[in-house]
């Protein structure tokens, strides 16, 4: 009983998160300006990270935690590099 409730809740949460990812993908694809695309990418990876956490719950494996930590790290570095690129036109100076 309680497992089926939890199962339904996890699947619902995953659907909501995938919808959220598609909204941020929309912003990433349609801009209109470069900063909107970067903002979309930033939201996209945060949503993806949260989706991985829910997948971890569904499979009962703690390994997904490490994957989401790495996504958070790389996403942060990526957004910082892209913002810097927008500001100066180059990343490495």
């Amino acid at each position: 009983m309680s497992a089926s409730l939890l199962n339904a809740a996890v699947i619902a949460a995953q659907i909501l998160l995938v919808l959220a990812m598609s909204f941020s993908l929309f912003r990433m694809a349609y801009g209109p300006r470069a900063q909107d695309r970067v903002l979309g990418l930033d939201t996209f990876y945060v949503n993806g990270m949260l989706l991985l956490v829910t997948i971890g719950i569904r499979t009962g494996s703690v390994l997904y935690f490490e994957a989401s930590l790495i996504i958070a790290l790389l996403g942060f570095a990526g957004t910082v590099a892209l913002s810097k690129f927008l500001m100066r036109g180059e990343v490495i100076e």
């Binding site: 309680s2 939890l6 949460a13 995953q14 919808l19 909204f23 719950i57």
Partner: peptide
């Protein structure tokens, strides 16, 4: 399981509303 379900659904809805606002 009720607690976990509430947490997950609330969090996912907030993420969805945020991304909806973004678009």
């Amino acid at each position: 399981s009720i607690l976990v379900s509430i947490f997950l659904l609330l969090g996912a809805s907030l993420a969805l509303i945020g991304s909806f606002g973004l678009s």
